[in-house]
Amino acid sequence: MAAYSVRGVHGQTVRLLGERVLSGRIGEGATIDLAELSEELGLSLTAIREAIKVLAAKGLVGSRQKKGTFVRPRRDWNLLDPDVVRWQIAAGAGDVFFRDLAELRDALEPSAALLAARRRTDADVAELRAALVDIDDTAGGQTAEEAEAAAQADLRWHRALLAATHNELYARTDVFFAAGLSERDRLVHGGVHRDPVPSHARVTEAVAAGDPLAAEAAMHALLAQAREDLSRITENPVPDDDPERPQ
């Protein structure tokens, strides 16, 4: 499911409703009165229904005869969807989400680095180094566009590392953390953080050298730096000035 821009009325409405669900303001099992929302937000029923369709595609809401539109149980939500990740953070669940993400990465990426060092090909090393160049080129930017570019460069590198394991299931695990990693990177790269190039370069060169234990250790160090950078940002958050009501 594609991410929705908050710049348009439709995108803002989707975001507003998504954040209400993720925050628990509209609780699991609760019925959503579309006519009441239409009046509250000053939008047509058609606009509200279009927004609801997006939430339904992400597993957040459902509908049935006599019950109408309702919030589905959390177990049905697509918590890996990029928008849902963003709404969780905006709804105040960022600490728990990023803790879960860090634990997942701790379990996955050091072993991926170890396997990559054992199995990498020349093409794998070339892709890791090319992604590292992208990280270097985009590091240090402060604007939203620069932070987005940095996030995409970082994601390219992590996907290259997973691919270098030559384990198809490892390579597909990017679905578990890609959205969260991108959102974490947008936050970190939009603030003060340590240069990400040296930590990524140490993993890259250990993989290139075919040194599994060095690659594993370097990835542990990279993840420790990632936790420190995120803690620095989340302890001094930038306020979100977006009004709730779509304009």
Rank of each mutant, 00 (worst) to 15 (best):
S111N: 07
D106H: 10
H220A: 13
Q12F: 02
D124W: 02
R227W: 06
L181D: 06
Q152A: 09
V14A: 08
D81F: 09
A117C: 10
V61Y: 11
V203S: 06
A214E: 12
Q88W: 10
A130W: 09
G42Q: 07
A217Y: 09
R25L: 11
T46N: 09
I32G: 09
R15E: 13
D241S: 04
L115C: 05
R232S: 01
A150G: 10
R7L: 09
A107N: 04
D76Y: 13
L181F: 11
A123R: 11
G59E: 13
V61D: 06
N167H: 11
P110M: 05
A201T: 08
G27A: 15
A130G: 14
A107E: 04
R118K: 15
E28I: 05
T31N: 13
Y4K: 01
V192S: 00
L155P: 03
A208R: 08
A217S: 15
V188R: 00
F176V: 05
G8M: 02
A209W: 04
Y170S: 06
D134G: 02
D95Q: 12
A150E: 01
T46I: 05
L223Y: 10
A214W: 02
V192M: 00
G68C: 11
E127F: 02
R120G: 02
I233T: 00
E28R: 02
A117E: 03
P237F: 00
A163V: 11
Q88G: 14
V197F: 07
R49A: 12
G140K: 01
L115K: 12
L55G: 05
H166S: 08
V96G: 15
